[in-house]
Design a protein around this nucleic acid. Structure first.
Lengths: 193, 193
DNA sequence: ACCTGAACACCGTTCAAGT
DNA sequence: ACCTGAACACCGTTCAAGT
């Protein structure tokens, strides 16, 4: 069968889910497709671009319209949808964070957050800055949460290894705390209606 | 002369400043020290730990007492000091972000932000969450700013290559915007005094 | 205690040559 | 147009052996 970009991204996502980002190499990917490593370079100019395509596929998991009527509700919904999309794949947050940092992935997501902030009444510059601030938080927090998730499922707890030790807020509650912090801050930047 | 951890970190920092994080390899570092690659593994168990030591050295650049009397002023000062420390070395933000994510570097910095937030009147859990939210922002924003700095000093501007195109807010102003956003949000979380 | 030599098991990328 | 074979120039890490 012939190789195309979609098949390559499919296979890459499978390796990501099964073995993690560290094992997602061009050679391993080629092997899993039954192809020589060089073949991948017919479809993608380099690894960075290939990873960006995988990141955009992960981000496709947050498509669809948001339901909330007010801007704060819409941003909250977008933030949770982004987090859910990242958590749906092993190392999804780290992958997307690095691909978005290179600007090769996620321009639509960025645009969507910025547009929603602009709808709230912010001028374009402030809307972009607010969107970026939100994105730094979502990517940073989720990346952190996800990596610690995998450390725990392996064995890396030096003290307090008792099974009933950690009773703080849930990951979702911790995420919501920082998110509301940001949105409250954004509210103070709004022109009085 | 004998090798020790300090000399290794010195040499690593020199490579970082001159050639960037991508060229900071164990082999290159060994060569610059006039030593075999294996020698480094007598002083550090692996590359990750070595990079954490370099990150902690970068973070040492933000030591010293803060002057402000109120908590918001202290957090603002800490945030700017952290940003300045990161910008003082090529790829400093990316290095520190990744080393702090691994939890091998920066525990004192994290502790310092959390303590300052606690002084504002937040309970320990909220103080930690607020500190983390701030750190995600500072590391994400500065990393972004710094990488784009280096893209510009090379040649990677597709359109609007005219020298007088980009007249938005300065990097420092952009940083301050998100920072104030976060601090305003934190204020709403405070118990009324 | 501290380091060398030499190897092991990999990487990403290129490119003539094949079909 | 699409892929193979084979190489190039690297990696991080280990470990017997030397001093």
């Amino acid at each position: 069968v012939q190789l195309d970009r979609t098949a390559v991204v499919d296979a890459a996502l499978a390796i990501l889910d099964d073995y993690g980002l560290g094992d997602l190499t061009m050679r391993r990917l080629a092997t899993s497709l039954g192809v020589a490593p060089g073949a991948l370079y017919w479809h993608f100019p380099n690894k960075q671009t290939l990873l960006a395509a995988v990141a955009d596929r992960v981000l496709a998991g947050m498509a669809g319209p948001v339901g909330a009527a007010d801007w704060a509700g819409r941003l909250t919904e977008l933030a949770h949808r982004l987090r859910d999309a990242l958590l749906a794949h092993r190392d999804g947050a780290e992958l997307v964070a690095s691909a978005m940092a290179s600007r090769l992935a996620g321009p639509l997501v960025r645009e969507r957050f910025a547009q929603t902030a602009a709808d709230a009444g912010l001028d374009p510059v402030r809307a972009e800055l607010t969107a970026d601030t939100l994105l730094y938080y979502i990517l940073g927090h989720t990346s952190d949460e996800q990596s610690r998730m995998h450390l725990d499922s392996a064995g890396a707890l030096p003290d307090t290894a008792s099974p009933l030790a950690d009773t703080g807020p849930s990951p979702a509650a911790r995420f919501a705390f920082g998110l509301e912090l940001l949105l409250d801050g954004a509210r103070t930047r709004l022109p009085v209606p």
